[in-house]
Nucleic acid binder design. Structure first.
Lengths: 222, 222
DNA sequence: TATTCTCTTTCACCTAGTGAAATCACTATG
DNA sequence: CATAGTGATTTCACTAGGTGAAAGAGAATA
């Protein structure tokens, strides 16, 4: 085993990354998949075929790879059972209330390595609103969610750095798990034109309150 | 490489199965995970740690493994983009209509190796109804969905074999993809007390019609 | 303190995975 | 209808990478 990979397993890691590439692309050819991981096609093909063999991937008549039923099963299971489901279920009512109170879209985000993933949402009902970020990731560095998830900066700051997309402003607050650490973040995202100074107080308070009551729910589930 | 694994990759397969075990269990200890795959704990631990390192798994303070943010991200992405999303999105209105017309729960299922996975549903509104099978699998052999997905038997037969659960009756019809093959099945599941001879005709017709119009939608999407 | 449990680390062995190159299967292009 | 070009597939000799028995470290129970 060489230097940096003392605790990993190359082929497994490659297979997983290939799976990631396919899921992210939706549908991808052998060549493109191999290229995206900088692998020889023969190696990529072996892995992709293995994944297909186990049902994690499907392959259409043109040789394109896409997600298969096994992965779908795992995806569905992981989202309706397990700790993640518990978290999103617990968060749902708070997100709904928050979206209603602020008139903007509310999101729940967790940390993934050096990024934040949005895993649940309650959408604003307004015509112009923030939508479709569920499943999406943003960097931890330079974002309000990132700062909150890493424990930096005060909670619920209203920011408009435009770091990810222009004209998007955010108010974020940390969700504290039973063990006292930050396990997620609740954020309200909307157009910076609406989330300006005049609305700061109400939005900030609402987000903080939502995050706090969710944290409370998680501490004493019953 | 020994005999039977000429096109596979052992460590990758093991990692994937470990991931499967964790997702299925929701939360599992090293020992149990290793036992479920019949692996030495040292080998299982190495894989699990690698998975954790990449964010596919999380580990709580008691050493229990559960799904991590990376997997969650992939799960969410695969369900809202890609071919699977296309299929379930296209199926949604048909399932809704079917559930309303029959008063029973309607499901969409696809094949996963030698099993069928339910990937979408529209629930019956009745008090006694069939619920919660999304993400669940049943064997292809001896079930109505199975027969339909493999192309055996006439479509839309109403069966009450009780092969999976007693008192559950099903009416199933095949969904035909653009390439002319069976790519999914639509089924209506309900208590056998309600899905009896007297209701056979209406339910059968409704299921067939739903499957056919979904197949039609898939052929000429626009 | 001894005993038993589960998790973790180590390391010598050798099989399982690798990837360059050859081959095959298409399909644009002259 | 050759001909070159593109991308998928197969082969195979090499050895890096993965394996798992065994020993070590805690933690829990008696």
């Amino acid at each position: 085993m060489t230097s940096s990979t003392l605790h990993k397993s190359r082929s497994a890691e490659r297979a997983l990354h290939l799976l990631d590439a396919v899921v992210t692309a939706g549908s991808i050819s052998l060549g493109d998949a191999a290229k995206s991981l900088d692998l020889p096609t023969s190696t990529a093909l072996r892995h992709l075929k293995a994944l297909e063999h186990d049902g994690y991937l499907d392959r259409d008549t043109h040789g394109m790879f896409s997600v298969g039923p096994t992965f779908l099963r795992l995806a569905l299971t992981s989202l309706r059972e397990g700790p993640a489901a518990h978290l999103t279920t617990a968060a749902r009512p708070h997100l709904d209330r928050l979206a209603e109170a602020t008139g903007e879209s509310a999101y729940l985000a967790v940390r993934e390595r050096s990024r934040a993933v949005y895993i649940a949402t309650a959408e604003s009902t307004r015509a112009i609103r923030h939508v479709g970020w569920v499943g999406r990731t943003v960097p931890l560095k330079g974002t309000a969610v990132g700062a909150t998830l890493t424990g930096d900066g005060e909670p619920a700051v209203l920011r408009n750095t435009g770091s990810v997309e222009p004209d998007v402003a955010a108010a974020v607050a940390p969700v504290i798990g039973p063990d006292g650490t930050v396990i997620a973040a609740i954020s309200v995202l909307g157009p910076s034109s609406r989330l300006d100074d005049s609305s700061t107080d109400t939005v900030t308070t609402a987000v903080l309150a939502a995050a706090e009551s969710l944290s409370h729910d998680l501490r004493g589930p019953k």
